[in-house]
């Protein structure tokens, strides 16, 4: 499959995530759109990993070129899991204080 198809797909998913962050006010939906953007990047990393592997396997069938990309995806998932636990705790605390998940309440942080 041409690598451009994967790039277009991931760009579309990433842009949908950006539009979601910019247009929604519910903090949980904004957070979910960030997860969507992370997943788009993960898919692109795996596609590039297989692209470099396919270029290198002709010279050496035992090569492991491109395995770094898949391990990066693994570490991104690890960081995303940690980030979600802390982020949802912050959202729960915000809901407890304001009884809303509207991110416009957070503009009081600037004072």
């Amino acid at each position: 499959m041409p690598i451009q198809y994967y790039i277009y797909l991931c760009l579309a998913l990433f842009s949908i995530g950006i539009i979601g962050v910019l247009t929604r006010r519910n903090a949980i939906i904004v957070f979910m759109c960030v997860e969507l953007m992370l997943n788009a990047v993960n898919l692109l990393l795996v596609a590039f990993s297989k692209m470099h592997y396919g270029l290198a396997i002709g010279a050496n069938p035992e090569t492991t070129v491109g395995i770094d990309g898949q391990l990066f995806v693994f570490f991104i998932m690890v960081v995303a899991a940690a980030e979600v636990s802390v982020g949802l705790a912050i959202i729960v605390m915000m809901y407890r204080n304001t009884h809303s998940v509207d991110i416009n309440f957070l503009n009081r942080l600037k004072n």
């Binding site: 690598i3 790039i7 297989k50 270029l55 492991t64």
Partner: peptide
């Protein structure tokens, strides 16, 4: 990026054995 393709079903770098070793 012209004429580059992602290898679809061949290759074993995605298997848990090789990933675990790395």
């Amino acid at each position: 990026m012209q004429h580059k393709t992602a290898l679809m079903k061949d290759g074993n770098i995605g298997l848990i054995k090789n990933l675990g070793k790395a």
